[in-house]
Amino acid sequence: MADVATVAIGVVQAAGIVALAPFLTGVMRKVKARTQKRVGASVLQPYYDLAKLLKKDEVVSDQSSWVFRAAPWVMMVATVTAALFVPALLPLSPFGAVGDVLVVLGLFGLARFFTMLAGLDVASAFGGLGTSREMMMSALAEPAMFMTIFVVSLTLGGTNLSSLVGAAAQSAGFVAVPSMLFALIAFFIVILAETGKVPFDNPATHLELTMIHEAMVLEYSGKSLALVQWSQSIKQLILLALLVNLFFPAGMPPSLDAGWQVAAGAGAFVAKVALVAALVAFVETRVAKWRLFRVPDLLVMAIASSMIGVIFYYL
């Protein structure tokens, strides 16, 4: 079972996710800027932002309660904990025995729950607006996510992430199995929704009236804002890692015995995440934001797609 070495590997892997998440955000912003004929900020800009925010004082509304102060910590702890369970560079999560994919989704749900509470807690009009929109979206995004995971679990067997990814490594990915193809479509749409990308939400806007996620965290400043942004980056990297490891097994080491294979697998993982991230950024460039009340259509499409995946599995 879990000896010291695997625990160490797991901790290092989680630390890597936490440390590199802002870098991924920076890369996605850079790709977005370049595809939009802008020069864009450095890929390290998210780190500079975090460093700046961590040094700054906070302004906290006197109308708010402990919920507002606690929420960023809950978000951070929930996403960092989720990072411990997710196989990223290695097709292995050493803490798999205590947490599977459902726990990861549950942790995201917890973080979201506290974000929404914090949005309501400050009693500003925008927090309430953002929260009600987020509830509408998550009421559809979460079922879509679970349906997708259901298809993946059926196809690859079980909900334990290590065994799922291990099975994925032996498979040909989505290419050979139609049910996985439909799950992939659904998963991609859900990732766009969960990370607040353009057809759903515009993270770059300054217009309070159109915001979803940003409206909920509008009142945060200083360290709390840093935690909010950082945990958002970590969540994004975890979701992309899941997508890559479950659906694109190419390059994954079949076993952990050969050191060079493991290293090549890690390299392949980085390359695949970067590619998918670039694809997401490209999608953001290519479409305008949808009308708020048309957004559910897209999520319903994700649910439908994963339903088709279930049907294909049983056919």
Binding site: K32, T35, Q36, K37, V198, N202, E284, V287, A288
Partner: peptide
């Protein structure tokens, strides 16, 4: 075009 978040056209 910026307000509908189609940044490419806006740029």
């Amino acid at each position: 075009v910026t307000d509908v978040a189609f940044s490419y056209g806006a740029a």
